[in-house]
Amino acid sequence: MKQGIPEIDKERCKGCGLCIANCPKNILEMANDINSFGAYYTICSDESQCIACGACSLMCPDAAIEIILKREVG
């Protein structure tokens, strides 16, 4: 199973929640906080569960989510 880290740029995020609705692992949620533009933003509650499927970054209208793939080497 691939492992990933969703890197969420909270300043780009507008809090639309499309990523949250489309995350198959249900590990994304809205922060109880706002960014400098006054928008709630998405956070990942449990990165260890991320399977790097890319659904959140595909759906994000603000290109706020980059996905980092964890690779074990050695």
Binding site: A63, I65, R71
Partner: peptide, 18 residues
């Protein structure tokens, strides 16, 4: 050990603005 790499990056042609 783990080596991390970007699986998805914001495209370069997209200007860095809201």
């Amino acid at each position: 050990s783990t080596q991390n790499l970007h699986m998805y990056r914001r495209p370069e042609a997209l200007l860095n603005v809201r």
